[in-house]
Amino acid sequence: MKEQIRLYKKLLYIIIPVIILVMLFEAEARNVQNGFSLKKSLLEKNIENIDVLILGSSHAYHGIDPEVISSKSFNLAYYIQDLYYDYMLFDKYKGKLKNLKCVILSISYFSLWFDLSESIEKWKKFFYKEYFGINPKSNLSFSEIIDVKSYSFAFFYGFENVFLGTINPKLFTFGCKMNSYGWNIDTVNCMDSTELSFVKGKERLDFTNSMINNDNYNGNIKLISELTKYTNDNHIKLIFVTTPVSYVYKYYIDRNYYNAFQDGINEFVDNKNIFYFNYFSDKRFTINEYYDCDHLNGKGAIKFSRILKDTLESLKILK
């Protein structure tokens, strides 16, 4: 027994410093700025002045430069953000958006059938909860409950990244490349897409199609209905937009889903308060204006944002 106590004592000499180190890392990790914390602080900074709010997934985050649309607009879209989080974010802030005139909701080919919590990036639920207080759509699975990454930033980022970020903040950035309008400035640095090919387009489409689940359709339609009801009641214009994609991506889409997606959105359109502009097959965009198969790069985004602005102005949606 004496020997056992000796061993446990020695083990404590290791375990206690490890626990202290983990706590230090957790504290440090919580200070690391990430895409969610930055977006939240930028949004809340001037929330009362925002007149155009952009929601959606990476297609809008990459593709719509808010500064082109309006000097008081903000891009709240983010990578793989689904309609549930678009709606919940809007719901959370709608009371504070006192100057809001227009909501631009980017709808992608897969949006109506997509649920973030079923995707490989489901870990983002943790960040929406942590920074925006938005509960996940469904309860956490058992594996998520027992996964320490569902609670700890240090484990989520990895101790190595936190360590490197502590030594030099430039060594670890987590989705923070956005300007004060919430737009992804990373696209500005990727002007040319020289590697676009049908193989890449097929790969990307396979990934997109893997996110489609028919069971999510009704729930997503219901969320859009809720959104349209609020915007209608509050005289806010709601603009559905589908951003351009390259021909290597478009080539492989499932026409049945594409048609169903068009029908689903057009159900809401009244051309008074709710509009839909589909640029999916817009031939004005060349291959050099894409970041990858289905995302615009900086050059393409600015061009697209101008086209969108002109359209909105011509229809007197934006003045």
């Binding site: 000499y13 290791i14 490890v18 180190l21 484990f155 101790f159 190595e160």
Partner: peptide
């Protein structure tokens, strides 16, 4: 000896792939 123990435990913790 303990310095070496701590070094390896911390290296595993920080640089390990879990």
């Amino acid at each position: 000896r303990w310095g070496i123990y701590y070094f390896f435990v911390f290296v595993i913790l920080i640089f390990g792939r879990f």
